[in-house]
Amino acid sequence: MDQGIKSRPKYEKLRRDAAGRFHLLLADQAVIPPDTLDHDSPVGAFDECWTIERHSKAIPEADPNARTHGFRSQEHMLIALRHRLAREHMGLRLYAVGTEPFVWAVHGVGDEQGLGHSEMRLNATGSTARRVYCNHCRTISAGVTTSIFQCTGCNASLFVRDHFSRRLNAFAGIQIDAEVPGDVPPAEELYL
């Protein structure tokens, strides 16, 4: 069902920005699916690539000139990203490929460290499960796949809107039965 909300982010295959000087690519998996990158811009076209290995023994290379680094988790990667960007210089381009919550988490760190919209490119792929921000109790629930779900913070039955906040990295959730308590339609599995 198209809620008709304009201004959702649009994604396309990542292409290296020829105007940039150094290209850092972040992925939320160990192997980057080739169809998430533009065919003229394979992994080798980027100067450095960070991946998430999802196991506890992964560790980034000690050699700062290494072209690839593996991390244990998103959190582990973002800590390193924050520190790296604080030492970086103008001319950098940051790329992220993975689920929508992952790419916007990367964008958030980039924004905090001074990168502008045109210096970051994102491709959201894979699961479309959503992070949903309950507008009433401010709790963000992750991994929401249905059109209506119960808020993990205040138990309200929330309708999941298509309105997306890049800053909060979440969609808006508003109580579906606020006007007539109990009047909750059946949920549909939409965001898989």
């Binding site: 008709g4 909300i5 304009k6 921000y133 809107r161 298509d162 309105h163 997306f164 890049r166 800053r167």
Partner: peptide, 22 residues
């Protein structure tokens, strides 16, 4: 409309939900 949700949005983003006008 929610300030906390919309803070940081661009002009078209925060007007996203308004029907017809876009």
């Amino acid at each position: 409309w929610s300030l906390e949700f919309d803070v940081g949005m661009s002009f078209h983003e925060w007007h996203g939900p308004v029907p017809v006008a876009h």
